[in-house]
Design a protein around this nucleic acid. Structure first.
Lengths: 346, 346
DNA sequence: CTTGGCACTCAAACATCGAGAGTGCTAATA
DNA sequence: TATTAGCACTCTCGATGTTTGAGTGCCAAG
């Protein structure tokens, strides 16, 4: 007697059928029936396939929208597919080269890279891409520049060690000459070079009112960044995902858009589910969020481990081309790894 | 005998009826019939109103979706309403104060102001807001700073006279010390202070390979800005507009989203239709763009006339609360005027 | 000029029906 | 024991027909 159903393990044939169902359904968005499956060339009759389908349904890998409809994978079904059935997909070299080329064409700028990464992910996966800029564990001061804009306004430009740039206007109580501002810039830049928020705060530097005002602004900006509250999330391909047939119903679309506009929600999702390494697949309700029960995510972390890392990901309907998406995410992630490594000087 | 129809001018009662139709339709999104109108208190029977409606339709101010439906304003009808019938709407002082307060709470930063302006417009008008940052007629160099990031990478931070900040990473052929970079920064900053692209290009300054590389990057960035190709358009409230009943049909939604994602299209629309001064209302097909035939825009320019100006606007369905929207746009525009004036030192 | 009255129109909502796809079960077969 | 042919059954989907009601246009009387 064969071991069957006891271990909830599937026979070879069941696996094959499950794989076919997933692939077919992902492609057509239509429930797939026994006859369609037979034509795929299993060498058995549709009746046999029906029996297997019923078994797979009992085991929880498939469902029925209604009595006389074909089968649709459940989350468990997709999970099994992703874990055991799916063949690895590597991005074809032509595409790889094209993507790499795009990254090298663009100027050396994190913001640009992030946009491009989002665009590439969205385009290649035909879903919505989410990308966060690399965050240093704790940001460190690098350089500061004060530029006079008018009698009453100066511009403060703050550069952090990882290349992040922040600017802010300052209102001046009374006019200060550009030379004076420059002298101050240099003094502070020298003093604070390489320091974190706490270190700057505990530094013993005698400052006049204006100077300590400047320092406070700097500390504020740095804290904001530390608290990741200024964390921008780059998105792309919102349109692409809306073209999927699952969004024929209007409120589906609405809820999705609401999700995508809700920054803190996305932030949470990404930080909750981004893996430390490798590519993570989160299918539907696995994310433990009702709003996400119809969507899956494929996430990866990139960057230089100790230094700074960000997250890239693709969000799409549960009915998603997992193999392809994982391949794309993996590739873009490794590409960003390289770029970051080069930027941080290996 | 009265002058009527000859001048295509409307009688008082017709104007009143047209105004009611517009208001009612804007509110309910349903074609409005003679009986509804009678209840509004015109003091005449529905039959009389029907006659007037027929007259208004002949004159082109109203239409019929089908024989047995109520009336809907045409573009001509909306235009007449906006031009002659609508009562001015001033934002209530409470709201004004709230908005002003928000602007003063936020840090002195153009980017933040733009975001806030978009958010306020979108929220107050319940439509999609579009905002462009102020553009100087011709950008002028103010200051430049080179910061060493690693052995192979330096960061160039360029500040323009209007406070715009641009950064770009530079790949270094060989390591250059921070002091050396600073010396160069200061030299170039001094030399180019206040100059335009052409003036920098024709300046006679002896430069080594690296230095002229830096200058080229600067020129490139400045040119980009001059050509307005880097022109960011701040958008907000995309969701709000999608909640309108006109988007029950899915492809309506799709085309709108496509429009809103298409940057160059929006840029064109804004630059084509933004008025030199005052508030401009563009109704449906008046914009001479098929894609826009279902949408209206309310636009205004803000900023300091000779110096730098940007555009703010609201995009919504033709069936829009024009009075309210115009009021909001006017107020936010004047508020930005003040802020900009203050920034440029009056 | 206004109004009550009435016939007419059309979209939207609802009900009915047949076709088709797909299932589950049974009994026969290898 | 696993497979298969056969068949009754179920349910969706699209087409078709029917009803309802809002709203019009026009006429004849006030």
């Amino acid at each position: 007697m064969e071991i069957k159903n006891i271990m909830a393990s599937l026979t070879k044939r069941q696996e094959q059928i499950l794989a076919y169902v997933v692939k077919e359904y992902v492609e057509t968005a239509q429930p797939v029936g026994s006859e369609t499956l037979r034509k795929r060339g299993l060498g058995v009759s549709s009746a046999t396939i029906r029996n297997e389908l019923a078994a797979l349904e009992d085991a929880g890998y498939l469902t029925h929208p209604h009595t006389s409809a074909g089968r649709v994978p459940t989350e468990k079904g997709y999970r099994y597919f992703v874990e055991s059935l799916m063949e690895e997909f590597e991005l074809p070299p032509v595409e790889q080269r094209m993507i790499r080329h795009q990254f090298h064409q663009v100027t050396l700028d994190i913001d640009q890279w992030m946009r491009l990464a989002a665009a590439v992910l969205a385009h290649s996966s035909r879903n919505t891409a989410l990308v966060t800029a690399p965050q240093s564990a704790r940001c460190r001061f690098k350089n500061l520049q004060l530029v006079s804009i008018s009698d009453q306004v100066a511009l403060l430009v703050l550069v952090l060690q990882d290349g992040t740039v922040k600017q802010q206007m300052l209102a001046l109580a009374q006019p200060i000459a550009q030379e004076e501002l420059m002298r101050l810039s240099n003094r502070l830049s020298d003093h604070f070079h390489g320091l974190s928020v706490e270190q700057i705060r505990s530094s013993t530097l005698t400052l006049d009112t204006f100077e300590s005002g400047v320092v406070n602004v700097v500390l504020n900006l740095m804290q904001q960044i530390d608290r990741r509250s200024s964390h921008e999330i780059y998105r792309d391909g919102i349109l692409d995902i809306l073209r999927q047939p699952e969004f024929a119903a209007i409120e589906r679309m609405q809820t999705l858009l609401e999700m995508l506009e809700h920054r803190t929600f996305l932030e949470e999702m990404l930080s909750d589910w981004a893996p430390e390494r490798g590519v993570q697949v989160v299918i539907g309700g696995e994310s433990r969020r009702d709003e996400m029960s119809d969507y899956s995510m494929v996430l990866s972390r990139y960057g230089v481990p100790g230094e700074a890392s960000g997250v890239i990901g693709v969000l799409g309907p549960v009915r998603m081309q997992y193999a392809r998406t994982i391949g794309v995410v993996r590739y873009v992630s490794s590409l960003l790894d390289d770029l970051m490594a080069r930027m941080y000087g290996r």
